[in-house]
């Protein structure tokens, strides 16, 4: 296997899907096990965020809300610039199992590469920081 595009985990939880759903999709729930603080606008296209005491924040966009079965959101790929369009998709699937819940989480999109990113990665003449600085200098000189 080469570049990992997809990460998948399944856990068995001894609690009904409704309860797991609350832990995954409410600010109180997310702040109790995932982040330290959280907010969520639970509808497709809604925004959500989690903050950690260390100072880090993750911004998410809610994509799928099918209570109490599927919850999906996208977030930024860590380490890429804030304006980079590449995002991974995280989907939680809840299935009833023996009075509890079988929870599967799939995060995918790590191996995506847009045509533009592909072009940038190969094109040695891409405009970069240096040329932007040169443009700024030209602009200031002209002023």
């Amino acid at each position: 296997m080469g570049f990992p595009d997809r990460i998948e985990r399944t856990v068995e939880l001894a609690h009904p899907p409704a309860k797991v759903w609350t832990a995954l999709t409410t600010a109180e729930g997310l702040a109790a096990w995932f982040g330290n603080e959280a907010a969520i606008d639970l509808r497709p296209g809604g925004s959500a965020w989690m903050k950690w005491n260390e100072g880090h924040t993750a911004k998410m966009r809610v994509e799928r809300v099918e209570e109490p079965r599927v919850f999906g959101f996208t977030w930024h790929i860590s380490g890429l610039p804030d304006d980079d369009p590449r995002r991974t998709y995280v989907e939680f699937t809840l299935e009833p199992a023996d009075g509890g819940t079988r929870l599967t989480v799939v995060e995918s999109g790590f191996a995506q590469l847009s045509d533009q990113a592909f072009h940038d990665a190969f094109d040695g003449n891409t405009k970069g920081w240096a040329s932007e600085l040169a443009e700024l200098a030209t602009y200031l000189d002209a002023a």
């Binding site: 570049f3 380490g79 890429l80 980079d84 590449r86 790590f110 191996a111 990113a117």
Partner: peptide, 12 residues
Amino acid sequence: APMQVAQQFLAA
């Protein structure tokens, strides 16, 4: 740009 591709790999 290539570093950002490598970064995706590391992020996974």
